[in-house]
Protein backbone atom coordinates (compact mmCIF):
# COMPACT_ATOMS: atom_id res chain seq x y z
CA UNK A 1 0.00 0.00 0.00
CA UNK A 2 1.39 3.33 -0.93
CA UNK A 3 1.78 6.19 1.47
CA UNK A 4 -0.74 8.11 -0.59
CA UNK A 5 -3.42 5.49 0.00
CA UNK A 6 -3.06 5.97 3.76
CA UNK A 7 -2.41 9.69 4.04
CA UNK A 8 -4.99 10.89 1.57
CA UNK A 9 -8.13 9.38 3.15
CA UNK A 10 -6.95 10.38 6.64
CA UNK A 11 -6.34 13.94 5.52
CA UNK A 12 -9.65 14.20 3.67
CA UNK A 13 -11.39 12.63 6.67
CA UNK A 14 -9.89 15.12 9.11
CA UNK A 15 -11.13 17.97 6.95
CA UNK A 16 -14.54 16.33 6.60
CA UNK A 17 -14.57 16.38 10.40
CA UNK A 18 -14.72 20.18 10.23
CA UNK A 19 -18.02 19.92 8.36
CA UNK A 20 -19.36 17.37 10.86
CA UNK A 21 -18.29 19.54 13.79
CA UNK A 22 -20.36 22.40 12.37
CA UNK A 23 -23.29 19.98 12.14
CA UNK A 24 -22.79 18.94 15.75
CA UNK A 25 -22.14 22.20 17.63
CA UNK A 26 -25.72 23.48 17.53
CA UNK A 27 -27.05 20.18 18.82
CA UNK A 28 -24.44 20.14 21.56
CA UNK A 29 -25.37 23.68 22.65
CA UNK A 30 -29.07 22.84 22.95
CA UNK A 31 -28.37 19.82 25.06
CA UNK A 32 -25.70 21.50 27.17
CA UNK A 33 -27.80 24.52 28.06
CA UNK A 34 -31.37 23.21 28.00
CA UNK A 35 -30.99 19.41 28.20
CA UNK A 36 -33.02 19.40 25.02
CA UNK A 37 -32.36 17.32 21.92
CA UNK A 38 -33.73 18.85 18.77
CA UNK A 39 -34.62 15.99 16.43
CA UNK A 40 -35.22 18.53 13.65
CA UNK A 41 -31.60 19.68 13.94
CA UNK A 42 -30.48 17.97 10.72
CA UNK A 43 -33.52 19.19 8.85
CA UNK A 44 -32.79 22.75 9.93
CA UNK A 45 -29.29 22.40 8.46
CA UNK A 46 -30.81 21.21 5.21
CA UNK A 47 -33.35 24.03 5.37
CA UNK A 48 -30.43 26.45 5.66
CA UNK A 49 -28.88 24.88 2.56
CA UNK A 50 -32.08 25.56 0.60
CA UNK A 51 -32.33 29.10 1.98
CA UNK A 52 -28.74 29.68 0.84
CA UNK A 53 -29.65 28.37 -2.60
CA UNK A 54 -32.64 30.71 -2.82
CA UNK A 55 -30.64 33.73 -1.67
CA UNK A 56 -27.80 32.98 -4.09
CA UNK A 57 -30.22 32.66 -6.99
CA UNK A 58 -32.58 35.53 -6.24
CA UNK A 59 -29.98 38.09 -5.20
CA UNK A 60 -27.35 36.73 -7.58
CA UNK A 61 -24.67 36.94 -4.94
CA UNK A 62 -21.68 34.87 -3.97
CA UNK A 63 -22.63 32.10 -1.46
CA UNK A 64 -20.32 33.58 1.15
CA UNK A 65 -22.12 36.89 0.84
CA UNK A 66 -25.43 35.02 1.04
CA UNK A 67 -24.45 33.81 4.51
CA UNK A 68 -24.78 37.40 5.73
CA UNK A 69 -28.50 36.99 5.07
CA UNK A 70 -28.91 33.29 5.85
CA UNK A 71 -27.25 33.21 9.27
CA UNK A 72 -29.29 36.04 10.88
CA UNK A 73 -32.49 34.70 9.28
CA UNK A 74 -32.04 31.29 10.84
CA UNK A 75 -31.02 32.83 14.16
CA UNK A 76 -34.27 34.82 14.18
CA UNK A 77 -36.19 31.68 13.24
CA UNK A 78 -34.49 29.88 16.14
CA UNK A 79 -35.44 32.57 18.63
CA UNK A 80 -39.10 32.47 17.61
CA UNK A 81 -39.12 28.66 17.41
CA UNK A 82 -37.89 28.37 20.97
CA UNK A 83 -40.30 30.92 22.39
CA UNK A 84 -43.38 29.72 20.53
CA UNK A 85 -42.98 25.95 20.23
CA UNK A 86 -40.24 24.69 22.50
CA UNK A 87 -40.32 26.72 25.72
CA UNK A 88 -43.93 25.66 26.42
CA UNK A 89 -42.95 21.98 26.36
CA UNK A 90 -39.63 22.18 28.17
CA UNK A 91 -39.69 20.61 31.61
CA UNK A 92 -38.74 17.56 33.63
CA UNK A 93 -40.40 15.28 31.14
CA UNK A 94 -38.23 14.70 28.05
CA UNK A 95 -41.08 13.35 25.93
CA UNK A 96 -42.86 16.57 24.83
CA UNK A 97 -39.80 18.42 23.45
CA UNK A 98 -38.64 15.25 21.67
CA UNK A 99 -42.02 14.77 20.06
CA UNK A 100 -42.48 18.40 19.10
CA UNK A 101 -39.06 18.52 17.41
CA UNK A 102 -39.80 15.15 15.83
CA UNK A 103 -42.98 16.59 14.36
CA UNK A 104 -41.03 19.64 13.26
CA UNK A 105 -38.54 17.38 11.48
CA UNK A 106 -41.31 15.73 9.47
CA UNK A 107 -42.88 19.13 8.74
CA UNK A 108 -39.63 20.71 7.49
CA UNK A 109 -38.71 17.70 5.34
CA UNK A 110 -42.07 17.59 3.65
CA UNK A 111 -42.31 21.35 3.23
CA UNK A 112 -38.97 21.23 1.41
CA UNK A 113 -40.25 18.33 -0.70
CA UNK A 114 -43.41 20.25 -1.55
CA UNK A 115 -41.54 23.42 -2.49
CA UNK A 116 -38.31 22.13 -4.03
CA UNK A 117 -39.22 18.55 -5.08
CA UNK A 118 -37.05 15.52 -4.41
CA UNK A 119 -34.56 16.37 -7.16
CA UNK A 120 -30.99 16.94 -6.00
CA UNK A 121 -30.00 20.59 -6.05
CA UNK A 122 -26.72 22.37 -5.66
CA UNK A 123 -24.99 25.69 -5.95
CA UNK A 124 -22.55 26.12 -8.79
CA UNK A 125 -21.40 29.60 -8.28
CA UNK A 126 -17.94 29.82 -6.99
CA UNK A 127 -14.44 28.89 -8.10
CA UNK A 128 -13.61 28.02 -4.50
CA UNK A 129 -15.70 24.86 -4.88
CA UNK A 130 -13.16 23.24 -7.16
CA UNK A 131 -9.92 24.93 -6.15
CA UNK A 132 -7.29 22.86 -4.40
CA UNK A 133 -3.78 23.21 -3.08
CA UNK A 134 -1.21 20.62 -4.17
CA UNK A 135 0.99 19.23 -1.42
CA UNK A 136 3.27 17.16 -3.63
CA UNK A 137 3.26 13.39 -4.13
CA UNK A 138 -0.18 13.60 -5.72
CA UNK A 139 -1.69 14.83 -2.44
CA UNK A 140 -4.02 17.81 -2.63
CA UNK A 141 -6.45 19.48 -0.27
CA UNK A 142 -9.51 21.32 -1.44
CA UNK A 143 -9.73 24.99 -0.59
CA UNK A 144 -13.39 24.70 0.42
CA UNK A 145 -12.83 21.85 2.92
CA UNK A 146 -9.99 23.93 4.39
CA UNK A 147 -12.25 26.97 4.75
CA UNK A 148 -14.94 24.80 6.36
CA UNK A 149 -12.46 23.27 8.77
CA UNK A 150 -11.07 26.68 9.71
CA UNK A 151 -14.62 27.93 10.27
CA UNK A 152 -15.34 25.02 12.61
CA UNK A 153 -12.21 25.78 14.64
CA UNK A 154 -13.15 29.46 14.72
CA UNK A 155 -16.71 28.70 15.86
CA UNK A 156 -15.52 26.39 18.65
CA UNK A 157 -12.91 28.91 19.78
CA UNK A 158 -15.43 31.74 19.63
CA UNK A 159 -17.95 29.82 21.71
CA UNK A 160 -15.33 28.87 24.29
CA UNK A 161 -14.44 32.56 24.62
CA UNK A 162 -18.11 33.47 24.88
CA UNK A 163 -18.68 30.95 27.65
CA UNK A 164 -15.54 31.89 29.57
CA UNK A 165 -15.52 35.65 29.41
CA UNK A 166 -18.95 37.15 28.80
CA UNK A 167 -21.99 37.73 30.96
CA UNK A 168 -24.09 35.80 28.47
CA UNK A 169 -21.69 32.87 28.71
CA UNK A 170 -21.88 32.92 32.52
CA UNK A 171 -25.66 33.02 32.32
CA UNK A 172 -25.62 30.00 29.98
CA UNK A 173 -23.38 28.03 32.34
CA UNK A 174 -25.37 29.02 35.41
CA UNK A 175 -28.64 28.01 33.73
CA UNK A 176 -27.11 24.74 32.63
CA UNK A 177 -26.08 24.05 36.25
CA UNK A 178 -29.41 24.92 37.83
CA UNK A 179 -32.09 26.75 35.92
CA UNK A 180 -34.29 27.43 38.97
CA UNK A 181 -31.53 29.14 40.91
CA UNK A 182 -30.47 30.96 37.74
CA UNK A 183 -33.91 32.57 37.66
CA UNK A 184 -33.35 33.75 41.23
CA UNK A 185 -30.29 35.59 39.90
CA UNK A 186 -32.51 37.60 37.57
CA UNK A 187 -31.92 35.45 34.50
CA UNK A 188 -34.98 35.20 32.27
CA UNK A 189 -34.63 31.57 31.29
CA UNK A 190 -37.23 31.73 28.51
CA UNK A 191 -35.32 34.52 26.80
CA UNK A 192 -31.98 32.85 27.48
CA UNK A 193 -33.17 29.56 25.98
CA UNK A 194 -34.38 31.42 22.91
CA UNK A 195 -30.98 33.09 22.59
CA UNK A 196 -29.32 29.67 22.89
CA UNK A 197 -31.50 28.27 20.11
CA UNK A 198 -30.83 31.34 17.98
CA UNK A 199 -27.11 30.72 18.45
CA UNK A 200 -27.49 27.01 17.66
CA UNK A 201 -29.43 27.79 14.49
CA UNK A 202 -26.96 30.47 13.43
CA UNK A 203 -24.20 27.86 13.57
CA UNK A 204 -26.44 25.34 11.81
CA UNK A 205 -26.98 27.99 9.12
CA UNK A 206 -23.23 28.25 8.58
CA UNK A 207 -23.15 24.45 8.36
CA UNK A 208 -26.07 24.44 5.91
CA UNK A 209 -24.48 27.06 3.65
CA UNK A 210 -21.25 25.07 3.53
CA UNK A 211 -23.22 21.89 2.89
CA UNK A 212 -24.87 23.60 -0.08
CA UNK A 213 -21.47 24.60 -1.42
CA UNK A 214 -19.90 21.22 -0.89
CA UNK A 215 -22.41 18.78 -2.37
CA UNK A 216 -25.81 18.48 -3.93
CA UNK A 217 -28.63 18.05 -1.47
CA UNK A 218 -32.18 16.68 -1.22
CA UNK A 219 -34.94 17.44 1.32
CA UNK A 220 -34.59 14.08 3.07
CA UNK A 221 -30.94 14.54 3.95
CA UNK A 222 -31.64 15.95 7.42
CA UNK A 223 -31.77 12.76 9.52
CA UNK A 224 -28.33 11.63 8.31
CA UNK A 225 -26.93 15.02 9.38
CA UNK A 226 -28.60 14.67 12.78
CA UNK A 227 -27.11 11.21 13.24
CA UNK A 228 -23.56 12.25 12.38
CA UNK A 229 -23.87 15.31 14.63
CA UNK A 230 -25.11 13.15 17.46
CA UNK A 231 -22.31 10.62 16.95
CA UNK A 232 -19.68 13.34 17.01
CA UNK A 233 -21.00 14.59 20.36
CA UNK A 234 -21.06 11.13 21.95
CA UNK A 235 -17.69 10.08 20.54
CA UNK A 236 -16.08 13.36 21.62
CA UNK A 237 -17.70 13.37 25.03
CA UNK A 238 -20.62 15.49 26.14
CA UNK A 239 -19.98 18.96 27.47
CA UNK A 240 -16.77 19.61 25.56
CA UNK A 241 -16.87 21.53 22.28
CA UNK A 242 -13.25 20.73 21.46
CA UNK A 243 -14.13 17.10 22.16
CA UNK A 244 -17.00 17.39 19.69
CA UNK A 245 -14.58 18.71 17.06
CA UNK A 246 -12.21 15.81 17.76
CA UNK A 247 -15.08 13.32 17.66
CA UNK A 248 -16.22 14.79 14.35
CA UNK A 249 -12.71 14.42 12.93
CA UNK A 250 -12.50 10.81 14.08
CA UNK A 251 -15.84 10.07 12.41
CA UNK A 252 -14.65 11.87 9.28
CA UNK A 253 -11.53 9.71 9.10
CA UNK A 254 -13.50 6.50 9.73
CA UNK A 255 -15.99 7.37 6.99
CA UNK A 256 -13.28 8.42 4.59
CA UNK A 257 -11.34 5.18 5.06
CA UNK A 258 -14.55 3.12 4.92
CA UNK A 259 -15.49 4.84 1.70
CA UNK A 260 -12.16 3.98 0.07
CA UNK A 261 -12.59 0.36 1.05
CA UNK A 262 -16.14 0.10 -0.31
CA UNK A 263 -18.19 3.02 -1.53
CA UNK A 264 -21.28 1.66 0.26
CA UNK A 265 -19.74 1.41 3.70
CA UNK A 266 -18.46 4.91 4.47
CA UNK A 267 -21.29 5.97 6.76
CA UNK A 268 -21.45 2.46 8.18
CA UNK A 269 -17.80 2.74 9.26
CA UNK A 270 -18.69 5.93 11.13
CA UNK A 271 -21.58 4.15 12.86
CA UNK A 272 -19.25 1.35 13.93
CA UNK A 273 -16.79 3.80 15.48
CA UNK A 274 -19.71 5.34 17.37
CA UNK A 275 -20.99 1.96 18.61
CA UNK A 276 -17.48 0.87 19.58
CA UNK A 277 -16.92 4.04 21.61
CA UNK A 278 -20.31 3.60 23.25
CA UNK A 279 -19.37 0.08 24.34
CA UNK A 280 -15.81 0.80 25.42
CA UNK A 281 -15.98 4.36 26.70
CA UNK A 282 -19.59 5.55 26.96
CA UNK A 283 -18.61 8.90 28.43
CA UNK A 284 -16.78 9.72 25.18
CA UNK A 285 -13.13 10.29 24.41
CA UNK A 286 -12.74 13.79 25.81
CA UNK A 287 -15.51 14.01 28.39
CA UNK A 288 -15.09 16.95 30.70
CA UNK A 289 -14.73 15.57 34.19
CA UNK A 290 -17.96 16.58 35.84
CA UNK A 291 -17.76 17.60 39.46
CA UNK A 292 -21.13 17.20 41.01
Amino acid sequence: MSLFAVVDPVMQGLLLGGMYALFAIGLSLSFGIMRMVNIAHGDIIVLAAYVTLVVVETLAVNPFVAMIVVVPSLAAFGYVLQRVLLNPVLGDDILPPLLVTFGLSVIIQNLLLAVFSADPMGIHADAVQTASIGLGGGLAVGVLPLIIFASAVAVVAGLELLFAFTGLGRAFRATSDNQTVAQLMGIDNRHLYAVATALALAISAIAGSFLALRTTFVPTLGPSKLLVAFEAIIVGGMGSLWGTLAGAMLLGVAQSIGFRYNSGSGILAGHFVFLAILLVRPQGLFARARRS
Binding site: R35, M36, P97, L98, P223, L227, H271, F274, L278
Partner: peptide, 18 residues
Protein backbone atom coordinates in the same frame (compact mmCIF):
# COMPACT_ATOMS: atom_id res chain seq x y z
CA UNK B 1 -29.27 1.57 27.11
CA UNK B 2 -25.91 3.21 27.72
CA UNK B 3 -27.48 6.43 26.46
CA UNK B 4 -29.72 8.45 28.72
CA UNK B 5 -33.00 10.21 28.01
CA UNK B 6 -33.14 12.05 24.70
CA UNK B 7 -29.83 10.59 23.54
CA UNK B 8 -31.33 7.11 23.87
CA UNK B 9 -33.91 8.18 21.30
CA UNK B 10 -31.31 9.06 18.70
CA UNK B 11 -29.05 6.12 19.56
CA UNK B 12 -31.82 3.73 18.58
CA UNK B 13 -32.04 5.55 15.26
CA UNK B 14 -28.34 4.97 14.61
CA UNK B 15 -28.86 1.24 15.20
CA UNK B 16 -31.68 1.16 12.64
CA UNK B 17 -29.44 2.97 10.18
CA UNK B 18 -26.67 0.41 10.79
Amino acid sequence: FRLQGPYFAIGTWVVADV
